[in-house]
Design a protein around this nucleic acid. Structure first.
Length: 457
RNA sequence: GGUCGGAUGGCCGAGAGGCGAGGCUCGGGACUGCAAAUCCCGCUACACGGGUUCAAAUCCCGUUCCGACCUCCA
C-alpha cells in the first residue's frame, strides 16, 4: 500500500508525510470567528480537513485534532454593541450555528475545541516570554507589539519581503517601532470587554490565541496546521512569528484549502444569506451538501452554483441507490472495505476527484454484476469504505433519517404491491399503474426488477 | 508595487510530455406491458501566439483575461 503524501504551503511541494511521533498526528485547524452564521465556504474548510482527519484515522494514525473558536474580535464587539447584548451572547449564538452546521455535514467534533477567551492565561504567559526575550515590547499605551524585524524568516510562509508589503494608511507610528509590527495584545477601549494583564486591561490580538492554544494542546512542535487560503498572510505568518520567537518549532507542514467561489469570486457578505449553510440545507440534505463540497480537490477553487449542487446530489443518490440495492441482494449491511486504488488516490495529497472516478468505475462493475454476491460485496464494500472516509456513508448515524421502519407500513406497502403484481399478471396495466401512482404520491418509488418489485422511500 | 493561484467539452471537475479521468446533462440503442433502474454507444475539450520535441492540455518564451492576499477574512 502507498503512503501518504501531502502538499505543504511553506515548501510548495508535495512530499511524504512523516509524523513527529510514530503513529500519531497532531493537527491544529483555524476554526471560526463566531461573528455570523457559517456560509458554505467556512464549512468547506471544515469538510476538507475532516476528510484529511478521517483518512489519517483510516490509515491507522491516532489523531489529535484541535479546532479553535475565536470568540472575541472587533466584529463580535461591534455586533454586540449594535444589538445591545453582551459580546459573549453574540459569540455563543454563532458558535452554536457553526456546531449545528458541522454536525449536519458529519464533520467529526474536534478532539478539543478551545475558546480564545478561555486561554487568556496562556496568552499572557506567551506574551511575557516574548517581551522577556526581546521579541516584543509594551510601549506603555497598553498595547503589546511583536517586533517583526527581529523575527528570523518572517514572511517565509507567504514568500514575501517585508519591504514589499504595503503599509496600512492608518498604521500607528506613535507607539510602533515599525509600522509592520503587529499587536499581540490590544489595550481596551472604553466599554470594551477586557482582561487584566501586567500591561493594563485589554484583549488579545488576532493571532496570539492560535499560538497559545496550539502550544497548550499540541506542544511546541506538531504535525499539521491548517486553514483557509486567506489566512496565510497575515494570520499564519504572524502565528509562526510569535511561536518561533518564543522558541517553538511550531507546525511542520501547512495546509490551506481553497475558496468556494461564485462567478469566479471569493464569497462576500454582499451575497446575503443565500449561501449560508442553513439556507442551502433547505434545498439539499446534509450528506449531499457534504458530497458536493468535498468533491473538488481541497486546493482547487470550487465554483458554486445551485445547478452544480443539484447535479452533484443526483450523482450521489445513484451511489446511495446502488448501496441499498446491494444490501438487499446481500441480505445484510455492506461491509466497509478500503480499496488499494482508493488509498492510492487519497495518499496523493487527498486526490478526491480520482477517488470519485474509482467509485464510479466500481459502481459500473457492481451494477453489471447482476446478483453475483461476491462482486457486489466487493464493489459495494469498497464504495461504502470510500464514502465513509469522505464522511458520506449513508448508513452513518449522523445522517440517520426519520424514515419509518414501521413493520405495519412495510406490510401495507407489500400488500399494495401484491395487488399490483396480480393486476400485472392479468395484464390489467391500468390498475397496476394506478396502484404505482398512488404509492408514488406517498413518496415511495416502485421499481420492477427481474426478482419482483422493489420499493424505496 | 510585491506575493500566490487560475483559464479544460453544454455544465461540473481531474490530469501535468505519449493510450481522450470521472460525473451530470443531452442524443441513440439494449432490457421493459409502460415507467424506473441498469448496461452499451455517441457528444473528440484544454485562453491566445510562437518555440522545444518523434510526440505538448502538460515543458519554454511572450500575450490576453480572471481571481486571491498585502494586518477584518474559510
Amino acid at each position: 500500500m502507498s503512503s501518504l503524501n501531502l502538499y505543504d504551503t511553506k515548501s510548495r511541494k508535495v512530499s511524504s508525510f512523516k509524523p513527529i511521533k510514530k503513529g500519531e498526528v497532531g493537527i491544529y485547524l483555524c476554526g471560526a470567528t463566531v461573528q455570523a452564521p457559517p456560509h458554505i465556504g467556512h464549512i468547506r474548510s471544515g469538510v476538507n480537513f475532516d476528510i484529511l482527519r478521517r483518512w489519517l484515522i483510516t490509515s491507522g494514525y491516532k489523531v489529535t485534532f484541535i479546532r479553535n473558536v475565536t470568540d472575541i474580535d472587533d466584529k463580535i464587539i461591534h455586533k454586540a454593541t449594535h444589538e445591545e447584548i453582551p459580546w459573549w451572547q453574540v459569540a455563543a449564538k454563532y458558535e452554536r450555528s457553526f456546531t449545528d452546521a458541522y454536525n449536519k455535514l458529519n464533520v467529526l467534533p474536534p478532539t478539543y475545541e478551545p475558546l480564545a477567551t478561555g486561554h487568556i492565561t496562556q496568552m499572557i504567559e506567551l506574551i511575557k516570554k516574548l517581551i522577556d526575550n526581546g521579541s516584543a515590547y509594551a510601549p506603555g499605551n497598553g498595547d503589546v507589539y511583536l517586533e517583526v524585524t527581529k523575527v528570523k524568516d518572517y514572511l517565509s510562509l507567504s514568500n514575501q519581503k517585508l519591504d514589499d508589503l504595503l503599509v496600512a494608511d492608518d498604521a500607528d507610528l506613535k507607539f510602533k517601532k515599525d509600522p509592520k509590527d503587529f499587536a499581540l495584545w490590544k489595550a481596551a477601549k472604553k466599554d470594551e470587554p477586557s482582561w487584566p494583564t501586567p500591561w493594563g486591561d485589554g484583549r488579545p490580538g488576532w493571532h496570539i490565541e492560535c499560538s497559545a492554544m496550539a502550544h497548550a494542546y499540541l506542544g511546541e512542535s506538531f504535525d499539521i496546521h491548517g486553514g483557509g487560503l486567506d489566512l496565510i498572510f497575515p494570520h499564519h505568518e504572524n502565528e509562526i512569528a510569535q511561536s518561533t520567537a518564543a522558541g517553538f518549532n511550531f507546525a511542520n507542514i501547512w495546509m490551506h484549502n481553497a475558496w468556494v467561489t461564485t462567478s469566479g469570486e471569493k464569497m462576500s457578505k454582499s451575497l446575503g444569506n443565500s449561501l449560508q449553510v442553513a439556507e442551502i440545507l433547505k434545498k439539499v440534505r446534509g450528506i449531499e451538501l457534504r458530497w458536493y463540497l468535498g468533491s473538488a480537490h481541497y486546493r482547487s477553487m470550487l465554483e458554486f452554483s445551485f445547478e452544480a449542487l443539484a447535479e452533484s446530489a443526483t450523482a450521489f443518490k445513484r451511489i446511495e441507490a446502488f448501496l441499498s440495492r446491494s444490501e438487499s441482494i446481500l441480505g445484510k449491511e455492506v461491509e466497509l472495505l478500503i480499496a488499494d486504488e482508493f488509498a492510492k488516490a487519497m495518499n496523493d495529497d487527498l486526490a478526491v476527484p480520482q477517488a470519485l472516478a474509482f467509485i464510479a468505475e466500481s459502481m459500473r462493475i457492481g451494477n453489471s454484476a447482476a446478483e453475483d454476491k461476491k462482486i457486489i460485496a466487493k464493489t459495494a464494500g469498497e464504495i461504502r469504505g470510500a464514502l465513509s472516509v469522505l464522511g458520506c456513508d449513508p448508513r452513518d448515524a449522523a445522517f440517520a433519517t426519520t424514515q419509518s421502519k414501521n413493520g405495519a407500513i412495510d406490510g401495507l406497502i407489500k400488500l399494495a404491491l401484491e395487488q399490483r403484481e396480480a393486476a400485472r399478471l392479468r395484464k390489467d396495466f391500468v390498475a397496476a399503474d394506478q396502484i404505482r401512482d398512488q404509492i408514488a404520491s406517498l413518496g415511495i418509488t416502485v421499481e420492477d426488477t427481474s426478482s419482483g418489485p422493489r420499493w424505496s422511500y
